[in-house]
Computed example of a mutant assay.
Amino acid sequence: MAHAATESQFVTFSLENECFAVPVEVVREILDHEDPFRIPHGPDYLLGLRDVRGQGVPVIDLRLRLGMSQTQKTPHTRILVIDVTIDGRSLSLGLVADRVFEVTSFRSDAIEAAPDIGIRWQSDYIAGVVRRAGDFVVIVNLTKLFSGTDMRSLGSVATRPLEPA
């Protein structure tokens, strides 16, 4: 007897001309883009801190983190506020996306593994790939993408609430 494929919901968004997705359960909210408070000497993809309901949330240029060109702010630019567990700690991050499309469901049997192209490349952040409308949607493995020494230091920046002005 075959098992029925399960469905999971994802928030889809664009970076440059590519479509990406993250699980809907990690997305706390989607905000209009505002310039964050700059933090000196941070990694290039760390744009700064943004106040999200009294909490200082590091804002990440996801395009730079993925090795793409820097985000150019447009009226469609959004920040996905996510809560993700990194090294056993819950961390809130703001991810800059060129555009947020929708919440959509993908069947588990439609999610393919990251393709093997025969050379080493930075694919460990890819949780899977879904074919849709003649194109691909890349599902981001946020834990893999944000694990590492530099991200642990972001956690210490983000754990303190911002003082009211």
Rank of each mutant, 00 (worst) to 15 (best):
E18S: 14
E18N: 15
C19I: 13
C19G: 02
F20G: 13
F20Q: 12
F20T: 12
A21D: 13
A21Y: 10
V22T: 14
P23W: 09
P23I: 05
P23N: 12
V24A: 13
V24T: 13
V26P: 02
V26S: 08
V27P: 01
V27T: 05
R28A: 15
R28H: 11
E29D: 12
E29Y: 07
E29Q: 07
I30G: 04
L31G: 12
D32E: 12
D32W: 03
H33G: 05
H33I: 06
H33E: 08
E34G: 03
E34M: 10
D35I: 04
D35P: 03
D35G: 01
P36K: 06
P36W: 00
F37W: 04
F37H: 05
F37Y: 12
R38H: 11
R38Q: 04
I39H: 02
P40V: 04
P40M: 03
P40F: 03
H41W: 06
G42E: 01
G42Q: 04
G42A: 13
P43F: 08
P43K: 02
D44N: 13
D44T: 06
D44M: 09
L46Y: 02
L47P: 00
L47A: 11
G48T: 03
G48N: 03
L49I: 10
R50T: 06
D51T: 00
D51I: 02
D51N: 03
D51K: 03
V52M: 03
V52H: 06
R53K: 10
G54Q: 01
G54H: 02
G54C: 07
G54P: 10
G54T: 01
Q55R: 05
Q55V: 03
G56P: 00
V57P: 08
V57N: 07
V57I: 15
P58V: 05
I60C: 01
D61M: 01
D61K: 02
D61R: 00
D61G: 01
L62H: 06
R63W: 11
R63D: 10
R63L: 12
R63Y: 11
L64M: 09
L64T: 08
L64D: 04
L64F: 05
R65W: 00
L66K: 03
L66D: 04
L66H: 02
G67H: 11
G67V: 11
M68R: 14
M68L: 15
M68V: 10
M68E: 13
S69N: 13
S69A: 14
Q70E: 15
Q70A: 14
T71L: 10
T71V: 15
T71C: 12
T71F: 07
Q72F: 13
K73Q: 10
K73V: 14
T74F: 00
T74W: 03
P75D: 10
P75H: 05
H76I: 06
H76C: 05
H76K: 15
T77H: 09
T77I: 12
R78Q: 14
R78Y: 11
R78L: 10
L80D: 08
L80G: 06
L80A: 15
V81S: 06
V81C: 06
V81I: 15
V81M: 14
V81G: 05
I82R: 00
I82T: 08
I82P: 04
V84C: 09
V84Y: 11
V84L: 13
T85R: 13
I86V: 12
D87F: 07
G88H: 15
G88A: 11
G88E: 11
